[in-house]
Simulated scan of single mutants.
Amino acid sequence: MIERIDQGQAIWFSQWLRGSMGILPEGYARRVGILPSGTVPVPGAEVPFQAPDCNDDPPSDAQQEVIDHILLESIDPETPCCFAVYAYFPRQDWGVHYGFNQPEGTWYLAGDLHYVMFSAPLKEGLFGPIAQRWGDVFSIELSYLWPEDRSWFLSSPLDVAFATVGSDDDLLADKLLAQPILDAHEW
């Protein structure tokens, strides 16, 4: 069941996002970049991947399905997680107007982007379930997902040319790297 995010998690996320490039928190032993079509590695760069278009695409539907499958295969689907969904609504009442009714949620403005943050079991916070729940709503997409213990972190932020998974779990990282459809690269 989707619930309000714990205040401590919301504060941590907001502070991290405001103080970073919004790609991946520090400290994970393994960092895997997942490249949508057209995105290429850029060796030695601070941001190690680049897309030819400034309107960077999220992972494809097929890539999202594989990411969801690997996470569900590697992590207990009932694991309590937090997630941030990008919602392009300049004002909260626009979200309601477009059918995004989120009474359990909490709105946070992080930088210039709006995110709605929730907590839920992993199985409800992945790309597929988010699309099923809010797929018909204007500009809703999963941007960040992490367990309450922050042992791994998935990011697919708006206007970034790639998604990333950070983890200390070698098996999770290796499973992502082994899937050709993900065009995954360690960095």
Rank of each mutant, 00 (worst) to 15 (best):
D6R: 11
Q7S: 14
G8Q: 13
Q9S: 11
A10E: 12
I11R: 12
W12C: 04
F13V: 01
S14W: 08
S20I: 07
M21N: 12
M21Y: 14
P25F: 15
G27D: 08
Y28D: 03
Y28F: 15
V32G: 02
L35T: 08
P36Y: 08
G38A: 06
V47S: 06
Q50C: 11
Q50G: 10
P52A: 10
P52Y: 04
P52C: 02
C54E: 15
C54M: 12
A62T: 03
Q63M: 08
L71N: 01
L72R: 10
E73A: 14
T79K: 04
C81P: 04
C82T: 10
V85L: 15
Y86C: 02
D93L: 06
V96E: 13
H97T: 12
Y98Q: 01
Q102W: 15
P103G: 01
G105D: 04
T106V: 13
Y108S: 01
D112S: 13
D112G: 07
L113H: 06
P121K: 01
K123Y: 08
F127T: 01
G128C: 03
P129V: 11
Q132I: 13
R133T: 07
W134I: 02
G135E: 10
D136C: 07
E141L: 14
E141A: 14
E141N: 11
Y144A: 03
Y144T: 00
L145N: 06
W146D: 00
R150N: 03
S151E: 04
F153P: 00
S156C: 12
P157G: 04
A163I: 00
G166E: 06
S167W: 11
D168V: 06
L172I: 02
L177V: 06
L177N: 08
A184I: 00
H185Y: 15
W187R: 02
